[in-house]
Design a protein around this nucleic acid. Sequence first.
DNA 1: CTTGACCTGTGTCTTACACACAGGTCTAAA
DNA 2: TTTAGACCTGTGTGTAAGACACAGGTCAAG
Lengths: 142, 142
Amino acid sequence: MKVTELAKEFGTTPDTVRYYTRLKLLNPTRSENGYKYYPPIEISKLKFILSARQLGFSVSDIQHIVDEASLGKAACPLVRSLIKERLAETEKQFQAMLALRKNMKDALAQWEVKEDKAPTSTMVCHLIDSFEPTEENGGSHE
Amino acid sequence: MKVTELAKEFGTTPDTVRYYTRLKLLNPTRSENGYKYYPPIEISKLKFILSARQLGFSVSDIQHIVDEASLGKAACPLVRSLIKERLAETEKQFQAMLALRKNMKDALAQWEVKEDKAPTSTMVCHLIDSFEPTEENGGSHE
DNA sequence: CTTGACCTGTGTCTTACACACAGGTCTAAA
DNA sequence: TTTAGACCTGTGTGTAAGACACAGGTCAAG
């Protein structure tokens, strides 16, 4: 399989396949003309990479996992440990987004009923300057 | 106020203040020795920028808002329109994270009870290869 | 006069690709 | 046979919002 064929097969882009190949996560063979050809084993590796990405592993994580596996060791303990880390991070970001979303919605609601005001030397936009986060958010950092 | 003082005042970093200054969002004066000094008006601009960032505006958005305001026009319509866009984007990302988080949690649960397995030529890690997303997630793209 | 804490600009690094570009290669039609 | 178009190649750059590094200037205190 060639790059574009492979990408289409898995609903990703040629650039993504090339990117993984640059990082040596994929190791296609070369045909006479210089084109990359992906044999079945590389195809299954791509499938693996895409699955792992969907589960929140970083590309760097995947490299570590593949390295481990290429030594013949079971990567499972590493995989379990990594996903705990990533899940914790995701949870943090998730909470942050939850708060952000609420702030944005509140702001939108507050602003719908406020009139426009021209800027002054000390105020760029009174909407933003006057926005008050509500109870749950806006508390200082904890 | 000097860079570090200013950063501390608002709980941000000197690098962030320098970054905004590079982009000319802030325009400090220079003292004899070449140091940047931020007069009160620049201090209030920084406050504005940080508030806007907290509301999900991009730095580029803020530049547009500031540009508009510097022409003497009310930036309010632009601000209302931008936050709608940003909120829509945030909502999308939020839903994506929600799904990701669920997948990660499900994977973690599935994996706690599975044994380790050495890799084979066609399988890097059976945990990841065998993961099945549950109902709500995993549906094809819609 | 030296130490140490601050400041300066500039440049590089991060993530996970997307996109551009100049040029090589293949297929099929004219 | 030529040629158009659709593919491929590598390499280089751009993205967001800073973080970090580095070489060197500045300043107050001892």
